[in-house]
Amino acid sequence: MASLFSALRKPSVTNQPPSVWETRRNDLVIILWFALMLALGLGIRNRVLNASHTLAIGEGLPNIALPVGWSITKAEGLALQAKNLASPSMFDAEIDVYTRDLKPNEAIELVHSAWSLKRSEILPQYRELSVENVKVQNDITGMRTTYAYVADPTRESGASGLPVVVEAQDLVFVQNNKVVVVTTAADAAEWTDEAPYFQQVYDSLKLQLLDGDAQGGVQ
């Protein structure tokens, strides 16, 4: 400790000022050091943003990865709900998982149609944007619907904020006689920022698009 203080106090044994070369060396070294620390910081950032934990959504069903830091809540009628309370929008980005038993003679197309119809009845200003055929867990056929609607998140709390246009995707598939619907939703203005989180969910389900995009990316 004494030698450290000594080195801090008087790093040189002479009173000579640094040469031009030494000053340039110091400039270069501190910039490199700063860049290295920022690169390490970037690594921490990426690690935190990509960090996830897996949760079971039901017996015989795949586990699902949720971003660390999202708040997991119990919502009525849902197997799982997670919200990103750090979303900048009044509408917190959310991931919902709904499951139910498959009815006799019910095909995936029928399940998807019924689900979309239900959405259009419940959600204000519902508008379907696209439907894609997908595969989940490598061999399970499913369908993914991208849609938008208008939500009014501040009204519930008695505030008078503006309504929010929400962009969302419903991934519907059937596994072990269970219908599974995974919904990802966010303020349309924040959709791009939230997309990496939603991608974690799709990656954990090994989602593949059958219409060209092999990565199963978030649109």
Partner: peptide, 11 residues
């Protein structure tokens, strides 16, 4: 650093 010869790690 302005007035002393400092080792490379100093700044």
């Amino acid at each position: 650093t302005r007035f002393e010869k400092t080792p490379i790690y100093y700044l």
